[in-house]
């Protein structure tokens, strides 16, 4: 067989951890960069919604969303400590080395959405992948019409990316609405599920010529879909990003397959229309 040489798609490149920022309980943001500047430059061409495989040698490798926008200078992951790999990442100190490969997946087609309204609906750490799109959209503000953000968290302490939230709340170019399930710490904002924000007095959710980005825990996802459909959203105008157990990130290991799709290469971004046609429950 005559085959041309190929790159090794399983080979991660060495990265160095620069600093760690606490977000909320069990969730930290890890600022890192590749030790090789050429790798860093190549990686920076990622699209919002793509992901990377993070290697903690001796423990394993896990897929992580990319919360930064390619329009930002820094590269970072925001990771909740859940399993053994994320625990190993949480144990790293600035200066420690690990490894990363990617970016992988389709990402959100942000250029296709030029000229449209954007509605972002996030629950809890569902904001991690959507942060990339929001920052990207704000960096290309003139390309989009209205931009609305609806964000829910369990308590005020569970609101992440607070610097960004404060900025978005102040910014004239974006409407940012927050809610919590349980008020505390002198919270004076809305209390209720994220869908309750849609009916708040003074809130007018853009529906016509609008794309809704939805990301959050499965139960939140189900209810928000219901609310959006009640508002008149069509399935093809609702987009989300799915997560699955993954080993390779390149469509070979078979773990992330849902029905007819490999989440790693065909996704992780799917419209709600596509999600329903996968042929298997998400």
């Amino acid at each position: 067989m005559n085959l041309s040489p190929v790159d090794n798609c399983y080979l991660p490149k060495i990265a160095i951890l620069d600093r760690v920022v606490d977000e909320i309980a069990e969730v930290k943001t890890f600022y890192w960069r590749f030790t090789d500047p050429a790798e860093q430059a190549a990686f920076k061409k990622f699209r919002p919604g793509q992901f990377a495989q993070v290697s903690l040698f001796g423990i394993g490798e896990f897929p992580a969303s990319l919360p930064p926008s390619p329009t930002e200078a820094d590269t970072f992951f925001t990771v909740k400590q859940v399993g053994s790999c994320s625990a190993a990442l949480h144990a790293l100190k600035p200066g420690d080395k690990f490894a990363v490969r990617g970016p992988y997946g389709n990402g959100f087609p942000m250029e296709e959405y030029y000229g449209k309204n954007l509605v972002f609906v996030a629950g809890g750490i569902g904001l991690i992948p959507l942060r990339s799109c929001i920052i990207y959209a704000l960096a290309h503000r003139e390309k989009y019409k209205r931009i609305q953000i609806f964000l829910g968290a369990k308590t005020p302490r569970d609101l992440m990316y607070r610097d960004n939230l404060r900025e978005w709340e102040k910014s004239a170019g974006v409407e940012c609405h927050l809610t919590v399930d349980r008020a505390a710490d002198g919270w004076t904002g809305n209390v209720g599920v994220v869908g309750s924000l849609f009916k708040k007095p003074g809130v007018q959710v853009a529906v016509e010529d609008t794309v809704a980005f939805v990301c959050g825990p499965p139960i939140m996802f189900r209810f928000v879909i219901k609310d959006l459909k009640a508002l008149g959203f069509q399935d093809k105008n609702i987009v989300s990003t799915l997560e699955r157990y993954m080993k390779c990130g390149v469509g070979k290991c078979g773990h992330c397959c849902i029905g007819v799709a490999y989440v790693c290469v065909d996704g992780p971004v799917f419209t709600y229309d596509q999600i329903q046609k996968l042929g298997e429950d998400i």
Partner: peptide, 29 residues
């Protein structure tokens, strides 16, 4: 289908191996 696993082979050495996996197994997803 395969899974990927790291194993310690020396005090400062790790090897990453892939092993056949099966969609029949409960932990696959």
């Amino acid at each position: 289908c395969f899974t990927v696993s790291d194993r310690q082979v020396g005090p400062d050495e790790v090897e990453r191996v892939r092993i056949w996996d099966a969609c029949a197994l409960g932990g696959f997803t």
